[in-house]
Amino acid sequence: MLRKVTKRFLSYKEPISLKYCDLHSPRNLSNELFEAFGKDGLGLLSISGIPYYRSQRQKLLSLSYELSHLSVLDKAKIENPESGFNIGWKESSSQYPCGTFTANPIDDYNQDAFYQNLWPLQSLPSLRPTFRELSTTIMKTVFLLAMHIDKYMELLFPYSNSQSFEGLLCDSHNHIGSLNHSLSYNQGREDNDFNWKNYSGLLTAYTCPLFINTVTASPLPFEFFDYETGIIVKDANNESVHIKINNDMLIIQVGFVSQILSGGVFRPKPTTVYHDEKFAGTGRSEFRMLLNPNDDCQLQCPDEVNAFTSNVTENEVKEYWKSGATFASIASLIN
């Protein structure tokens, strides 16, 4: 018997949004943080009005098309199979062309992880400075948000030795940026076909994608895509919600480490990427940053009793995490 194909309606929603100037103000952002990252939130929020962000995003995402179309020889020079392709260039072997370039925006050589960034310095020399410019802007923005998260945690746990989100991020040399270019295709809308993912880390930052005409190799007008991100989130009711942002917004998402450090107040939500049929055949470029503590950082939970509920996934986190467990040990078990 043929399996019946069902298409579900995806509701569109704009996440809780902050202005960059909010991060520099003495405003109490506790309500916004709870609505965005709490149990009933989407596990993410957007930040707009970030200085230089829009132009830096445009420059870097445009380069991802050029990077993906370098010669086979040039791309082979920036591949690192010894790292499991976790650094440098990785090309998908699927029927839908896709390639990802990954680098540490802070250190070209990470002594703790024993890897070295691989830049296409000869074939695409502008990639390194452009990658670092946007990464630096994103990190500074996330660090400011982390400062407000710390203020919120101090209100929630005034008598607990809560770990500082800002301190963990500022001290870390473990941040990773990934630049991706792929060919959009008609995926269909059945939830079972989606590759749902939960992030183990502290915070993840996404840009809105840039769509490229694969014939002319030029970016398509943003207005044509009507705030399209392709990011789908399962909300608190287990419903699929399509996130809408514009090209001035940066998305910040919490992971399981945030759940531990917040005593269960922050709740990550599963996400996936969906390609609508109207975008089939267009190039899609995007950038994301994983902002995490150092691998040897020992994680502490300010409220172990109430940090985890009966949710299956959260029980798994509780099973993996013990007081003082390092970030590397948690990440290896959850990923």
Rank of each mutant, 00 (worst) to 15 (best):
D108F: 02
F114R: 14
N161K: 10
I87Y: 10
S64K: 07
Q116M: 04
F101D: 03
E66C: 07
Y96M: 03
V142E: 10
R132F: 06
Y109F: 04
R128V: 09
Y115E: 04
P97V: 09
L124T: 02
E79L: 05
L169K: 09
K59H: 06
D150W: 10
I138K: 11
S62R: 06
V142C: 12
Y152T: 12
L60P: 10
L60Q: 09
K77Q: 14
Q56D: 08
Q163L: 10
L60R: 13
D108K: 09
L179G: 12
S92C: 11
A103W: 05
Y185F: 15
P120R: 09
N104H: 11
L61C: 13
S71P: 08
E166K: 02
T136L: 09
Q116F: 04
S135G: 08
S123L: 01
Q163A: 14
D108N: 12
Y109N: 07
D171R: 10
Y96P: 01
L70E: 11
F101N: 02
S68F: 03
D171Y: 03
T141C: 14
M139V: 04
C98W: 09
P125A: 06
E91C: 12
F85K: 07
Q116Y: 01
Y185S: 15
G167S: 11
I106N: 01
K90A: 09
F101H: 04
S162W: 01
Y109I: 10
H148M: 02
